[in-house]
Design a protein around this nucleic acid. Sequence first.
DNA 1: TTGAAAGCGCTAACAC
DNA 2: GTGTTAGCGCTTTCAA
Lengths: 352, 352
Amino acid sequence: MEEGLIRRSEVAKLAGVSEATVSRVLNGVGPIKEETRDRVLEAARQLNYVPSALAQRFARSRSGNLGVILPLLPKVNLFSTFYFSEILSGIGVTAKEHGYDLLLLFRKPEEPRDYANLFKSQKVDGCIILGAQNVPGERAALKELQEGNYPFCLVNQRFDGESYNTIDADQRMGSHEAARSLIRQGYRRILFLNGPAVYSNSVDRLKGYHQALEEAGLPITPSMVLVGNYSRTSGYQHAEAIAGMIRGGLADAVIAANDRMAIGLLQGLKERGLRAGEDVAIIGCDDSDGAKLTDPPLSSIVVPFYQIGCEAASKLLGAVAADPQDKKLQPVIQVKLPVRLVERASSSVIST
Amino acid sequence: MEEGLIRRSEVAKLAGVSEATVSRVLNGVGPIKEETRDRVLEAARQLNYVPSALAQRFARSRSGNLGVILPLLPKVNLFSTFYFSEILSGIGVTAKEHGYDLLLLFRKPEEPRDYANLFKSQKVDGCIILGAQNVPGERAALKELQEGNYPFCLVNQRFDGESYNTIDADQRMGSHEAARSLIRQGYRRILFLNGPAVYSNSVDRLKGYHQALEEAGLPITPSMVLVGNYSRTSGYQHAEAIAGMIRGGLADAVIAANDRMAIGLLQGLKERGLRAGEDVAIIGCDDSDGAKLTDPPLSSIVVPFYQIGCEAASKLLGAVAADPQDKKLQPVIQVKLPVRLVERASSSVIST
DNA sequence: TTGAAAGCGCTAACAC
DNA sequence: GTGTTAGCGCTTTCAA
């Protein structure tokens, strides 16, 4: 009961078989006589034997780990904490179902993106990349992964012209829907408060907005698109200019590319005497916890983060399990999960 | 430049030395002639060699992983997502500084707590346990860790009578402070909306509350302490009874054991025409993101989650690094980090 | 159906 | 200072 570490040899001895047989029984491979199997299992149970995953993985040359790379962010996250925990839970549950462990890899902003080293050092068998940006360093790192034929999957970020596995939300659909809803309600001067263009999500959201305005025959001027950095503060800072536009009759609604900016904006406008849902319509994106707490509650785009995590892990681990020689033949996976608008008082007279 | 996997033997060959020497150079152990070292490093660089962490760890019998065990929770988390990401970031940064990788281990509520197996299978060298509960299964699992002499650290949970490493916030201090502040402002009938007693935090918070009331000579009756489950819904559900007490002159303030319940309560009371900060004072705990968003903003106890994560990881990894024979002599670490009250409009006339 | 034995890639005595 | 060698605990041919 209380041994230091039980090795397989002891199990073999107790069961009166060879180590190889113990291995077969425990891994369920090859033909085994019923009685032998029982004897081995009983011996293992009796000795309270737990195989060394370290040795197994070494012998198999597989780490058994699914890596999740994510930027380490200071207080003002790119991610809402909501995003973070939802997506991670999805990945975690799915990895576990596939028998993989989750290796969390924080990357400091100033650190190089040496993703390929994770594979070379055999720390992971596949990896999911969160928060990737369209910048040279990132593109080079991803290219290296692809050339090394290392399985990876991007989440919420695509790269035009590259065929990387990607699980994304249909952001374009989201802001299209948001804009259409506003237009349907009679709003005509709809601003768009976007995030940095290094995130393809920002680009996609803008497209949906453009499309909806065009379809409605509404004019779009450069001054209608503002850019923040996805933080609450940046939404707050835009309040002054936007308040001016509202008062000047140049704006009657704002779609923000995430909830954090929307919430900051909403607060900033409130301080200037402008109330969301009355003086101006506001719609955010993410449907984070905070959206339900603001006054008035914030309309938002519901993004299935948990499901995105599940999809990313499951698709990736499917590819990892494939035979090495098949790897190059793996189809590229590019998923866009649907989103939906949830309307609350910030963008309509119907309170929620 | 583009090899499959480069092994150390190739580096040795190219540098014209033995594998052992390569090892010494790369690990910086033993005396090495300057010139040899340069040759080895150059060869490694040229071949783009990255050692196999898998093999290293196997050879050293050390996984190089710090495990973080956390309950996998459905929508209504025990943890706020805020808690989750703050603490995890703290752990992650610290682990990285110590050269450890982070293994995230989600535990489904119905699964057994076989923490010791993580060590037996050599998946981790130490582990941090989040969301531990004072229930028999947990106590048994922890006892087994202790008896096996496996390094672990609890976060935000202590067990009376056991000397486990624990990093906690001083919850008692927090609710003591909250109650004192209310009393100072003239509140006299202060309710306490607590969470389940399986969390020592709940017990500690209650103590601080009791202490403050006693010090002020205020009576405490059983009806003044209510119990929820830390979810927003449970706070909301208590609103009806609490509204009755407020109207009946039996209550004029409520301290909730976390922000989620406080926010639910605040909403429930609002629907019944009772406004926090005017008809009743409310103070939460955690100072989560949501606290700043409610109307009125919620007073709360600031808990240094990030720092808790850092402390837990750093203390634990210190113990892990210790010589095996010293392990039993390691002092037990029990840290209680201070918290502080931040007062907002929900508990005072001074708006924030 | 089972056993023997050759690794997996690296570390760490020990010898020179 | 550097090379030789025996493992680390398990998987997996190959024979029997």
